[in-house]
Design a protein around this nucleic acid. Structure first.
Length: 969
RNA sequence: GCGGGUGUGGCGAAAUUGGUAGACGCACUAGACUUAGGAUCUAGCGCUGCGAGGCAUGGGGGUUCGAGUCCCUCCACCCGCACCA
């Protein structure tokens, strides 16, 4: 009997594609373009697991579809090759990260090729290669040479700023800067070169500044806010602390407004857009200055609710606020010092998790500029140093946190909105409605007008002004690591200068070890004879992992260009990414930085689009199914009873050596009770039957891992309480593991390797199956069992073309009307499904078609051909014989997706469901081409229908063409 | 706490603008062919009922001739952010 031999087919076509450069992207610009991009992977040592290709399969289907639809498709792949794991490995083993990376990449490429992707490998890029990072460095230099002009609302060359300073001084420019000083034109012109350079650093988009950074001692580097999650590093999960350091940063805050506003038009998921909005964190309000009672100093606060200023009963400073030490009275000094020290040493984690308010009175008072009353100044770490001014005006009647603080420390509360205040509830605080009271000129107003009027008054009085605040911080750009792009900067008289563009790339020097130097400098401090023009020391930190990935989508457009990061022509043609598929974990990192860099390059006139990614789809993770057992490891007593006696009490020891959990009347051995004495063990999935979760004990206990994890004599159990006891003498005993769906990872022994699946079922089965699993964006566990259905289907498809004697059997007969009807119905649906990225339903539709045609014993089965081109890269090319026999003259890769032809559908009869009063009871065969009136006439005149209506006259007849006839009586 | 999302058979799911709920697949059941079956084919498969029928899309209510889909309300779960003034 003939067999679907996917191995031969796949090998053959992989060779064919390679030899014929089938998927090489055309450089001609006469066709419409489609840019379909996957987030390029970091090549980790573990290789691919079945979750990785999910998004690649989807984008590959779209790419093949678009090619067949006549688009010139750019569908490239590359590697995000700088990164921590390779460097950590280097620190441990001394192996150069470049070698580790190279090895991993070749594994990845082999695995990807096995899956039959239509990537154009000619355009492959690796961020760690000098030809690539030359341009990453070049973009850094452009950032260094630019400032942000708030007037024109774009980045400009620093020379335009210098020109303004020469003419008008600092007041002449509306630049985005944190610098608060000012200078006149003549002062500027009198400054030395060094002084000018130092001042300009306050304006450059890539700048060096002393800032509070996230320092990760375990990794020995600083991290950007986006790389810290819950107070620990995103990579590795090491603790992170705040530290003041001199660091390179990128002025992403200058773009905050544009990054926020331009989200609107993007075809991205609401959740990612919302995450970016929250991350940018725009809030509109006002600053307000409070004069200190006994000092000249003022405390400036930021508030979104200036309408509540009459309700201010205290002012709170962050413990790090510079005024805290100065204004604290002698009586309070000891307590405040103690508090500040305590707050400083409290970890980020503790601070987040403790909701109990803490704080201390400084002894100082400020004057409320509106009421002229004195209010006390407190310090508390519920006020963040890094946001706004690091000080807040507290209105306990309108803010939950202020309320909690006031209640705890017995501070007064003044109500400024009407309503029963005794009824303190969240709703009271959240409601921005109601009328203002106790607030002089604001009384009786609604919130919105009150805020407006309050800001007006604040500005009139000169005690503050309307202001917009952002949560987003400038992005820290230095990493004290080796395996990254060197920052193209050298130092002269302690001031940073970028190197000449003509001297790029600044290549990563060889060093003898990958640790920091003895003097605490980054690893690059070990490089010998590494000086700019033999004189000046280079910057020793490198760029962060996200530098190379912030612009790679542009490089693919013109990946070999040595004279420019991308040519004008290529950029103009490819414009932006039409479809970008990747994980949602990059929502506030990569996706934000890429938008920032793209906008910057747009300002410079180097790219033609304000946004890099038109449509974004986040594929869901494919999870693994872990197999768990619980091993009883701790034989100490529980509640005065040794576990063994507990176990004997609650379990029946059966004759065959098994132990069965027995539930007693009230109290049984609760899982919790035993859990304290157990440890969770992951059994590698190859020892467990995926359907029954039956552990192959013999193989497991004889394996290395089994020997290490459980030694004879131990007791172990699964969730249901089945125990296994003893020396494993009876190895045929069945033991059920507890399945657990979780992230696939090496350490959980639940990784499914695509290579194994391809070897057993073929790449097509894997691809179709992954699409069939469920909606692309959903998280779903891998289920090896149901892959058989897809494998079976593909075998059936193959058999449509071959008889039992392995002879090729495609009839030349013209397809019947019935066949064409099925075909065109399917074309329409598959086309719609792919366009809306619903791959699971398009696979299903296709399966239905094959089932129908099989049942019809159809003659011209080869009409299936076009679909196979899209859904499955190998199957259509079962033989070249098939291809030519079908009358195709052009090459397989140029096969065109057939157009949907409505005629075939209209001709045939349609079975209308007929509902009486909304309940479907009957069916009526009518031609689909009838008009509404004709259908109505037919429906009412039919004898049958009259009978159904029981002689009643219809009140209404509702007809949905092609769908339903509803008669209301 | 704030924001986003999800809830449909034993399981993964489908139903695109409100129009025959459960397509397609897994698992399961019966049968055929077979020395054999982890191959293939045929039929069945939401619950309930002998049946006609009745009941079913997390719970409750509403709009409509008609609701998985729209509105109100409650519940459960997942994800992100989190003392952002």
């Amino acid at each position: 009997m003939a067999e679907y031999n996917f191995n031969d087919i796949e090998k053959k076509w992989q060779t064919y594609w390679k030899q014929n450069a089938t998927f090489k992207t055309s450089t001609s610009t006469d066709k419409p373009k489609f840019y379909s991009l996957d987030m390029f992977p970091y090549p980790s040592g573990a290789g691919l697991h079945v979750g990785h290709p999910l998004g690649y399969i989807a984008s590959d289907i779209v790419s093949r579809y678009k090619r067949n639809k006549g688009f010139n498709v750019l569908h490239p792949m590359g590697f995000d090759a700088f990164g921590l794991p390779a460097e950590q490995y280097a620190i441990q083993t001394g192996q150069h990260p470049a070698i580790t990376t190279e090895n991993n990449i070749s594994t990845y490429k082999k695995q990807l090729d096995n899956l039959g992707f239509s990537f154009d490998w000619d355009r492959e890029i690796r961020t760690c290669e000098a030809e690539y990072y030359k341009w990453t460095q070049w973009i850094f230099i452009q950032l260094f040479n630019s400032w942000y002009n708030n007037e024109s609302n774009k980045a400009e060359n620093i020379s335009t700023l210098v020109a303004v300073f020469e003419q008008k001084g600092s007041a002449g420019a509306n630049a985005h800067t944190d610098y608060e000083g000012s200078f006149t034109a003549s002062e500027w012109n009198a400054y030395s070169e060094e002084e000018k350079q130092a001042l300009l650093l306050n304006y450059r988009l890539a700048f060096l500044a002393e800032t509070s950074v996230n320092w990760c001692p375990a990794l020995g580097t600083v991290l950007a806010n986006e790389e810290v999650k819950d107070g620990v590093s995103e990579r590795g999960g090491y603790p992170v602390e705040k530290k003041k350091m001199q660091q390179w940063s990128l002025r992403i805050t200058a773009y905050a407004d544009r990054l926020l506003n331009d989200l609107e038009a993007l075809d991205w998921s609401d959740s990612v857009k919302e995450m970016q909005r929250n991350w940018i964190g725009k809030s509109v309000g006002s600053t307000l200055r409070f004069q200190l009672e006994k000092f000249d100093d003022i405390i400036e606060v930021f508030t979104t609710r200036p309408d509540t200023v009459f309700g201010v009963t205290f002012v709170t400073l962050a413990p790090e606020h510079p005024l805290v030490a100065k204004i604290t009275t002698d009586e309070q000094k000891e307590a405040v010092d103690k508090y500040v020290l305590w707050a400083k040493n409290r970890s980020e984690r503790d601070r987040i998790s403790d909701t109990e308010k803490t704080g201390e009175f400084t002894g100082a008072y400020v004057i409320n500029p509106f009421t002229k009353t004195l209010v006390p100044v407190w310090t508390s770490d519920y006020v963040l140093a890094g946001y706004g001014t690091g000080a807040v005006m507290a209105v306990p009647s309108s803010d939950v946190r202020d309320f909690e603080f006031a209640t705890k420390f017995n501070l007064p509360i003044i109500q400024v909105y009407e309503g029963e205040f005794s009824d303190i509830s969240k709703e009271n605080f959240e409601a921005k409605t109601g009328k203002v009271i106790n607030s002089e000129f604001l009384n009786g107003l609604e919130t919105k007008e009150a805020i407006h009027l309050a800001i007006q008054k604040i500005e009139e009085l000169g005690v503050g002004k309307g202001k917009v605040n952002f949560r987003i911080r400038d992005a820290i750009f230095s990493r004290q690591r080796y395996w990254g792009e060197p920052i193209p900067v050298y130092y002269k008289n302690n001031l940073p200068y970028v190197i000449e563009e003509s001297e790029l790339p600044l290549t990563l020097p060889e060093i003898d070890a990958y640790q920091p130097t003895e003097t605490g400098e980054p690893p690059l401090g070990r490089a010998k004879d590494w000086l700019y023009q033999n004189k000046y020391g280079y910057e020793l930190s490198t760029m962060p992992g996200w530098a190379g990935s912030s612009w790679y989508f542009l490089r693919y457009m013109d990946s070999k260009n040595d004279g420019s990061f991308v040519s004008k022509e290529a950029q103009n043609y490819w414009q932006e990414v039409d479809l970008y598929i990747g994980g949602a974990e990059h929502a506030t990192g990569h996706l934000l930085y890429s938008r920032f860099w793209n906008k910057f390059l747009f300002d410079l006139g180097l790219v033609s689009n304000i946004e890099p990614f038109k449509k974004l789809v986040n594929q869901g993770m494919i999870q693994g199914v872990s197999e768990i057992i619980y091993l009883i490891t701790d034989y100490t007593e529980i509640d005065g009873v040794a576990p063994l006696s507990i176990i004997k009490q609650y379990f029946n020891f059966e004759e065959n050596g098994n132990v069965r959990l027995v539930f007693l009347e009230k109290e049984f051995v609760t899982k919790n009770k035993l859990e304290k004495h157990t440890s969770t063990i992951h059994i590698p999935i190859e020892f467990v039957d995926s359907v029954s979760h039956n552990l192959n004990l013999k193989e497991y206990i004889n394996s290395e891992i089994g020997k290490t994890n459980i030694q004879g004599g131990y007791l172990f159990l699964n969730e249901n309480g089945y125990l296994f006891k003893g020396k494993f003498s009876d190895e045929s005993f069945t033991f059920y593991c507890s399945p657990l769906v979780e992230k696939m990872s090496k350490s959980k022994y639940n990784v499914v390797n695509p290579d194994n699946i391809v070897a057993k079922y073929g790449a097509d089965t894997l691809r179709m199956y992954e699409m069939f699993l469920g909606p692309l964006e959903q998280f779903k566990p891998w289920n090896t069992n149901s892959i058989d259905g897809v494998a079976r289907f593909l075998r059936r498809v193959w058999r449509l073309f071959y008889n039992d004697n392995n002879e090729f059997i495609v009839s030349e007969e013209a397809p019947s009307k019935e066949e064409l009807k099925h075909l065109h119905k399917t074309i329409k649906k598959v086309e719609e499904d792919i366009e809306r990225l619903s791959f699971n339903t398009s696979v299903s539709t296709f399966m239905v078609l094959v089932n129908e045609l099989t049942n019809l014993k159809c003659s011209k089965r080869a009409i299936l051909e076009p679909f196979l081109v899209i859904l499955s890269p190998y199957a259509p090319h079962i033989t070249e014989e098939l291809w030519s026999k079908l009358g195709h003259t052009e090459s397989i890769s140029k096969a065109v997706f057939p157009a949907f032809n409505e005629e075939y559908l209209v001709e045939s009869d349609f079975e209308y469901p007929v509902s009486i009063n909304g309940k479907v009871r009957h069916k009526l065969n009518l031609p689909l081409s009838l008009s509404q009136e004709e259908i109505q006439k037919e429906a009412l005149s039919t004898e049958q229908v009259t009978k159904w209506m029981e002689g009643k006259t219809p009140k209404k007849v509702i007809i949905v063409p092609g769908k339903i006839i509803n008669i209301v009586i």
